[in-house]
Design a protein around this nucleic acid. Structure first.
Lengths: 333, 333
DNA sequence: TTGTATGCGTTATCAA
DNA sequence: TTGATAACGCATACAA
């Protein structure tokens, strides 16, 4: 059960440890004969280099740590895909840990990740306080995704939520809607920019804004709708803070005998796999998630290599995905 | 940017490295005075122990590796929650890596995980060939979740898919259904037991089975329904191989002007968060996911501690979750 | 209660 | 091209 070491491989191949080390690192200064002998011995023994020992001895790391705030959310999975692609391409490994949306657990995850002395850290929508991030950033390069920061030694990658809601308003206005409400994400991450984008766009079109307090869940969306119905104050179109909220809102509308999009149009945000389901077919705003991941990894690697010390603030363009939950008001075509 | 070491802490606290080491490991044989001095110095320096160096020196590891075959699937997130709870409780850290459902990428993830020399590995629904698993199992303890194995040095945690489909058939029969078809998962993981459970249950009730080839996706479910419709051969109830498939099937049924559950009842499998959405409200079979994780972590830690060498094969009981997609046939109450 | 060797698996630096 | 030797950061005796 004890794993073989370089020593074992060297012994079996009849060479020195140093030679094995060279072969493992792909050095060109080894004869083909010896190289294949070493490789063969390693294969037979099931040997693979000990990352920790290697990192210790070389004083470098080829590991990037990724903290995913919520593993349950498929949004992050696609970001990780982007990170993974770039990291692998550049010879880095990633290790993932999760914070479960709890600040304390997230802090533990951060410590755990750091205990491996990775070359850098990417935090996906972290909920820990800003000073915890700033402190970590003193020790190693850090990139934030879906969370902003003003600390000068951390890079950020976000989507332009203001623009996203602007697109949504524009879409509804072009369909002929005038009464457009926003189901607000409250304290949720990025809820602020989305709200601001909504308000700004409504003003641009000279329309009266209506912000309904809600949250990033389907039950939250349903609750907001019931409030609107009770108040007898239903608009012709709804802009949800995210897809889950939109789906909950649609359910509540249908429960009340209303039809989407005939009676009310609904737009989500995020373009999760949920929105794409035929059964749901939600008009929504797409964020370029894999691009988030790629840009984050690239920014991090630039820091790791010391190629840059100035912070970068990526603000990506969201895009509108029209599906089946939006139509002209009043069911007219 | 270079992280402090024990040496730095010792220097600042005015003690020896060894003392710092004792404090870090929580040894009781240190005076309170010195302990707090060390802790203070560590805090000020932002020091935390170097996991790799520690593991190297102690010849032990407090890390469990977790390979998640598909980060996009929330199913695994809940399993990870269970693993994480047990691991943390017993003083272990976890590191996660993902295989993206691709055997080659998964193999890379396995190698990467192993390069950290974790105490053990938990593989969630891996798609790598069995011999790759067997080979890895020679080097360290391995537990499989949602995949079976006959290798004697790996433990497995699965749900009893036969029983699960038995429950579903029983439910439909009790509602009065006689024509019950199974949308089969094909080569997918656990599709076999589910199919067998279906066939066995149908036989128990003296009903004619109907297995429709399909797959674990919503488009697969929709396609299967269109086939049935084209053949003019629609049963009164459908048992999907999983929730995604069920949702796709429901969409296709509704597209064809049929109503669920009035015209056709549909049952899913997995009880994903999707099924729980009010908008979907799918009757389905629940697997105790967090329990999967807890049992897997416990099994692994038993091996790690050398408390057990016999393999354990957990087969957990699934349960029926009745929601709104099943009703008596013909819409009668 | 504290300090001092020794070694963990590997890389890096020299000599040979 | 190869083989010794000293780090790397830490834990573990053991001695003081």
């Amino acid at each position: 059960m004890t794993r073989p070491t370089m020593e074992d491989v060297a012994l079996r191949a009849g060479v020195s440890r140093a030679l094995v080390s060279l072969v493992m690192r792909g050095s060109p200064k080894v004869s083909d004969l010896r190289r294949s002998a070493v490789l063969k011995a390693a294969e037979e023994l099931g040997y693979s280099p000990h990352a920790m020992a290697r990192s210790l001895a070389s004083r470098t790391s080829t590991v990037l740590g990724v903290m995913v705030s919520d593993l349950h959310n498929a949004f992050f999975a696609e970001v990780v895909d982007g990170i993974d692609a770039v990291a692998r391409e550049q010879g880095f490994d990633i290790i993932i840990n999760t914070g479960g949306r709890s600040p304390s657990r997230e802090r533990r995850a951060l410590d755990s990740l750091q205990s491996f002395r990775p070359a850098g850290l990417i935090l996906l929508s972290p909920v820990v306080p800003a000073n915890a991030i700033a402190k970590a950033a003193e020790q190693l390069p850090i990139v934030l995704v879906a969370r902003s920061s003003r600390v000068t030694n951390v890079d950020t990658v976000n989507d332009d939520g203001e623009q996203g809601l602007g697109l949504a308003v524009e879409h509804l206005v072009s369909l002929g809607h005038k009464r457009i409400a926003h189901l607000d994400g409250g304290e949720g991450s990025q809820a602020g920019p989305r709200r601001r984008g909504y308000l700004a766009a409504m003003e641009r079109y000279g329309l009266e804004p209506q912000v309904v307090p809600s949250e990033y869940t389907d039950t939250g969306g349903a609750r907001a709708i019931r409030q609107l119905l009770d108040a007898g104050d239903l608009p012709t179109a709804l802009l949800s803070c995210n897809d889950f909220n939109a789906v909950g809102a649609i359910s509540a509308l249908e429960d009340a005998g209303l039809r989407v999009p005939d009676d009310v149009s609904v737009v989500g945000y995020d373009n999760t796999s949920l929105a794409a389901l035929r059964h749901v077919s939600l008009t929504t705003i797409d964020q370029p998630r894999a691009e988030f991941g790629r840009l984050a990894a690239e920014a991090l690697l630039q820091r790791v290599r010391g190629e840059r010390t100035e912070p970068v603030r990526h603000l990506l363009h969201p895009s509108l995905v029209v599906r089946s939950t939006t139509a002209p008001p009043g069911g007219k075509q």
